[in-house]
């Protein structure tokens, strides 16, 4: 087959154009790919910053909660014990030796009680340090504190007490989550019995908190009312799932499931 001169020239021009167009498209593709990669990285950084900010907020909330508990305890418990001690000591008449000894013994007993309460408070003050002992211990401390009020009957099954690993950021958020759920129960539920079941199966953590309170209509309230929005947001932060079962006068059951550690 013979090509004419103009045909050869056309072939050369066409082929060169093809060989120049190919790199153009290749570079456009690479440029687009790298742009998307950059956007993705920026999104990752933003998400990370949000997470860090939320952890900081959670830490402050945990501290606030601890402070409130300490203030209430100082006022209602230790304050009362010390007032009673002062009253007791003021009423001592040293001329009545036997009565005085009895009152002094009572006062010593009251002071010893105050010291015990103060020690318990000191433990609470280390709310963040407590996480160093593990989430299981921190949660147990919370449960003990609520149980001590005598207002609720608690049935606790806490498998986290048996583990020796941790996830510092998740632990802080989970501690705050449980605190918020208990705050809700105390504020709104009017419950008498609370059941807490914490299970760790392989690397899945299940936290189920059930109460026998007045409950609420989940369909009407949704997951945003009654302080549930912050619970939902925190569950999302630890990439877990939240399931709330409740009905009016039938109590509430909150189930949180996530990968742990």
């Amino acid at each position: 087959m013979q090509f004419s001169s103009s045909e050869i020239v056309n072939i050369i021009i066409l082929a060169t154009c093809v060989f120049l167009i190919a790199p153009v498209f290749l570079l456009i593709y690479i440029k687009e790919y790298l742009r998307k990669k950059r956007v993705h990285e920026e999104e990752k950084v933003t998400l990370n910053q949000k997470f860090e900010a939320e952890v900081l907020k959670t830490r402050i909330e945990v501290q606030e909660q601890t402070m409130q508990t300490i203030a209430a305890d100082l006022h209602d418990n230790i304050g009362q014990l010390l007032s009673l001690t002062a009253l007791n000591l003021n009423s001592i008449n040293i001329e009545h030796t036997e009565k005085a000894r009895q009152k002094i013994n009572n006062s010593i007993e009251l002071i010893n009680n105050s010291i015990r309460e103060l020690r318990a408070l000191a433990k609470l003050m280390q709310a963040e340090n407590i996480l160093m002992m593990g989430l299981g211990s921190a949660l147990q401390q919370e449960f003990n504190h609520i149980e001590k009020t005598g207002r609720y009957q608690l049935i606790i099954s806490n498998q986290l007490l048996e583990i020796n690993f941790a996830s510092p950021q998740k632990d802080l958020i989970l501690l705050r989550l449980v605190q918020e759920i208990f705050n809700n129960i105390i504020k709104h539920s009017n419950a008498n019995h609370i059941t807490v079941n914490i299970q760790l199966i392989e690397n899945h953590l299940d936290i189920i908190i059930t109460d026998d309170g007045i409950g609420f209509d989940v369909n009407q309230t949704g997951y945003n009312g009654l302080g549930l929005s912050s619970i939902r947001k925190r569950v999302e932060m630890v990439q877990g799932t939240l399931n709330i079962n409740s009905a009016v006068n039938q109590g509430t059951s909150i189930h949180i499931k996530l990968l742990y550690p």
């Binding site: 001169s5 050869i8 020239v9 082929a15 060169t16 060989f19 120049l20 190919a22 790199p23 570079l27």
Partner: peptide, 25 residues
């Protein structure tokens, strides 16, 4: 570099033939 060396493929392929047989191109 990619444009130049990829684009010069046709030039390199045709250069020998054209220099000797097809001076018109």
């Amino acid at each position: 570099v990619l444009f130049f060396y990829f684009g010069s493929t046709v030039y390199n392929l045709f250069m020998n033939v054209i220099f000797s047989n097809k001076p018109f191109a």
